[in-house]
Design a protein around this nucleic acid. Sequence first.
DNA 1: GCGGCGCGTGTAACCGTTTCCACGCACCTC
DNA 2: GAGGTGCGTGGAAACGGTTACACGCGCCGC
Lengths: 335, 335
Amino acid sequence: MSAVTIRDVARRAAVSVASASRALNNHASVTPATRQRVIEAARALDYVPHLGARSLSRGRSNTIGVVLPDLFGEFFSEIIRGIDYAAHRRGLQLLLSNMHGSADETELAIRAMRGRVDGLLVMSPQVDAEFLGRNLPKGLPAIVMNAAASDGTHPTIAIDNLAGAREAVAHLVAQGCTRIAHITGPEGNADADARRAGFRTAMIELLGAGASVEIEGDFSEASGIEAAWKILGQNPRVDGVFAANDMMAVACMATLAEDGMRAPDDVAIIGFDGVPIAQYVTPALSTMALNLAELGERALEKLVAITESEEKVEATTEMLKPELVIRASSRRRHA
Amino acid sequence: MSAVTIRDVARRAAVSVASASRALNNHASVTPATRQRVIEAARALDYVPHLGARSLSRGRSNTIGVVLPDLFGEFFSEIIRGIDYAAHRRGLQLLLSNMHGSADETELAIRAMRGRVDGLLVMSPQVDAEFLGRNLPKGLPAIVMNAAASDGTHPTIAIDNLAGAREAVAHLVAQGCTRIAHITGPEGNADADARRAGFRTAMIELLGAGASVEIEGDFSEASGIEAAWKILGQNPRVDGVFAANDMMAVACMATLAEDGMRAPDDVAIIGFDGVPIAQYVTPALSTMALNLAELGERALEKLVAITESEEKVEATTEMLKPELVIRASSRRRHA
DNA sequence: GCGGCGCGTGTAACCGTTTCCACGCACCTC
DNA sequence: GAGGTGCGTGGAAACGGTTACACGCGCCGC
């Protein structure tokens, strides 16, 4: 064990633990001579402070808990990267927890954070706000990312899925599509549900009820491939596809192409999220791009702001607007 | 504050804190009646144990520290996913730290883990083993992932870059390439250096010294694009490209194609890492595929094994072999 | 009937820090 | 020269749990 404690340092420097602590933490009232002795002793013993103990006594851990539904794919890794970037700048550490999409695990994960973090970043598209409100520890600052409508108890930062879906549909229509399929995300996922809702209202507005097809997906590559099979089996075929995320769009596009149904001429395709992969496929995928790293960054900044301000902040909801990025997969030469 | 402590629970249940603790932790010697009262009190007060305090007194945190050089891209996110998967299965939490490639930060990051984790997973292609050996806390179990040659003090799990690079070159040669460029990773990065070394020896063996070109890169998309420009400006041109990672291969391939130099006919291209994106670009990218999630998983399992075994384990080195995945980008019709 | 055993419980020490408070000392001021 | 002031220091109490140890009690076996 690197079991050298501050007591060992104090003993070697012939001072009390109190003075040792003060010297090591740059407190004002320590003689330069004392400080010097303590620091030398610490170096000689290769002392590293026990941060667990420190946070217990300071009541502050300099750690932020991050609870995510999953870690798969670029969606989450971009968010983590944004969080990490902002956390690093502020000297905070990250305690990561993955609840694998289950509500029980979410509760567990959140409880497991108690006493180890100063604040919580929870992303939870699968469980409703009421559940979160009930389970988030009372005194712990928390930001809810991207959940179903906030219950008003915690500040939220969310994606404007509704507007994004409308814009995606409008874009396809502008390219001349008259019959559009939506590959949905998993039911019960807040993002997926909102994107589907946006798709429906936009379709009714722009093309009427008969022109839309919904194909169940679950955000996975596999479900994008299956969706392509369904599309290929239909008659009449669709001439536009709006997938609820980029991964499904990419997989669907590739599968369609194998059977000769090519984007953008036979079918215009657009995804959602704007993950890096979208720009490297051929044809490059149009998408409703989100700056996910920025989402993570902003969430962390907001959390820090709460943590530091004394008065309680009201539960505002901040929206992240997706941006239409038109690439080859949906660009028609003669629209 | 959710400041309800075990003392509050004990008071409400009219028992001592010792009994409360025992009841809540399923210790054997507690009367069912007592246990019942304690559990009810805990529920009534919405008690959540303070895990920081627990780990201090138990001397065990159920947390693993993960120190990575960066979080950008699929390479690291796949590794984290693998680590998380294995950690989750064992009920461990992850404390994440990113040292942004700097040695100072590495030292800081490692020190910041003291007293908060039971073990350390360090991935550090940029700093040498000697540095790590000096900085890893003495008593803390640690696994070094993918560093420059182990100093023999810590178990290591690494990528067989040398063999991978040779195999990549051999594959290109088998496809008929006679002049091959290697887009390198950043100098000083252990993976990059090993891949370059493998490239050199394989080239000398198979095609002789004159047939190889080295282009400096740094694993980034931008450097892949720049490499393409250099390739296009050369005379005679190469007919094979081995990039030190997939990201550069993808970017290079796309840029070459814009100028009419197409894979696989004009140039056969192969990358390294086997990140998911490689299979979606067109033409699909051949690569020396690594199962990065498995790498993370195995590292965590190994760490747990060390943590749990009493006798000290010797510092073995485990190798992860890349697997040649041939896709369209390097498949010549008439080899 | 008495000693011993086992079981459930409580008291208190401990984990490694930080920090409140008290204390002693030198210095300054009137 | 006495009394206040301020500064550096040390003792000890936190922080919130776990657990070694002691203790009292009822039961069993001789």
